[in-house]
Write a protein that binds this DNA or RNA. Structure first.
Lengths: 191, 191
DNA sequence: CTTCTTTTGGCACCAGGTATTAAAGGCTAT
DNA sequence: ATAGCCTTTAATACCTGGTGCCAAAAGAAG
């Protein structure tokens, strides 16, 4: 009668702290009806740090997520980039990108990856999207890794406009395709 | 020689903690070369809470910002919505939306506002962007307020596809125009 | 009954403080 | 210089939310 409760209690404890990480051990004793020592042994076994450590970790996370906001410059991680030729980026669909009802990615995130890549692949001081023609072929879902491949079809170094085609895949399946026209500041920086 | 330093020290202390809120009083002692009691009097005067309180506040902030992330469902504030007819939303271009070099909004943010609105205006359980044809007419800049207006051209309640046209303005000027084809779940839940 | 795991309890100790009282240093006005 | 005042430093008691360690009690299992 005391064998099973331990694992159950561990689950309850984990759940409680997931719901509200601000609970002290003392408050947990009230909820779980065991002594404070038991709570502490449990945390030890489950490798759950003490309240103050939890708060510190949360504070640190939010602190450097603010600091790393400039990374927001490009949506997705650039895996390969050949300026004025082609580029590849990876973007993983996570909670904040999907409709919570359906787990399907909101279109503008998939678009954002493609658009970022299309702009990044253009070798110029200033590159802006002028227009685009896009198709969402099948929905991208929570947890899926989207690989976008961009190809510069006409770099238009004189004309001031480049044509970039982007295909986004999840595994073998194409989920998105887009044709972008990118303004460029008329042929400058050659790296 | 001890009159001015107090205010200076207060400024330095504020600055240090702004740069790094994770400093203990003891560490501040080392940086400011005064006793720990002075640091504590200073914090008292400046109404700066102790380290642990600071961490807790940061953790709480990040915690309920996570909780309020579902607000992220729609990019921009919906000002008016007539389901299956039209909608208006407002989106203000701020730092995190622009290229830091030029202060020009990245296209996918302007697109996201339009796309969100086009999806929101469709009165159905599930609505997904199928394809779009978009044009960035002139760049939107830091601080500008973008008003997007969406009009449902063909609601296609039978066909399962709706056509939505979106125009985005800054003041009188049009900055973006897009034609969206939106999948709708045709009266019932269809994946 | 003995043995093992699990649960409690108690105590010392720690960080990072608060709160309070007191003393010392310095500056100014009378 | 002497008193009055602000500022700084010091000392002490106390608090929270723990860790670490040891020992005892309570079941469960052989």
């Amino acid at each position: 009668m005391e064998r099973i409760p331990k694992r159950q209690r561990h689950q309850q404890l984990s759940r409680l702290l997931e719901e509200n990480p601000f609970l002290t051990d003392r408050e947990l004793t009230r909820q779980l009806k065991v002594s404070i020592q038991t709570i502490r042994l449990d945390r030890l076994e489950l490798a759950i740090p003490e309240l103050r450590e939890r708060l510190k970790l949360m504070a640190e996370r939010s602190y450097d997520s603010v600091r790393s906001l400039p990374l927001h410059e490009v949506i997705g991680d650039i895996l390969d980039l050949q300026l004025d030729k082609s580029g590849i980026s990876l973007f993983e669909i996570s909670d904040e990108h999907v409709f919570s009802r359906s787990g399907i990615a909101r279109g503008h995130h998939v678009f954002a990856q493609a658009n970022s890549l299309a702009v990044a692949v253009i070798n110029d001081e200033i590159a802006l999207t002028a227009s685009a023609d896009i198709r969402f072929i099948r929905p991208a879902r929570l947890g899926e890794k989207c690989i976008a491949k961009a190809y510069v079809r006409a770099s238009g170094e004189q004309k001031g406009k480049a044509k970039v085609e982007v295909f986004t895949y999840v595994g073998e399946e194409m989920v998105f395709q887009g044709n972008f026209i990118i303004y460029r500041s008329a042929g400058e920086s050659k790296t």
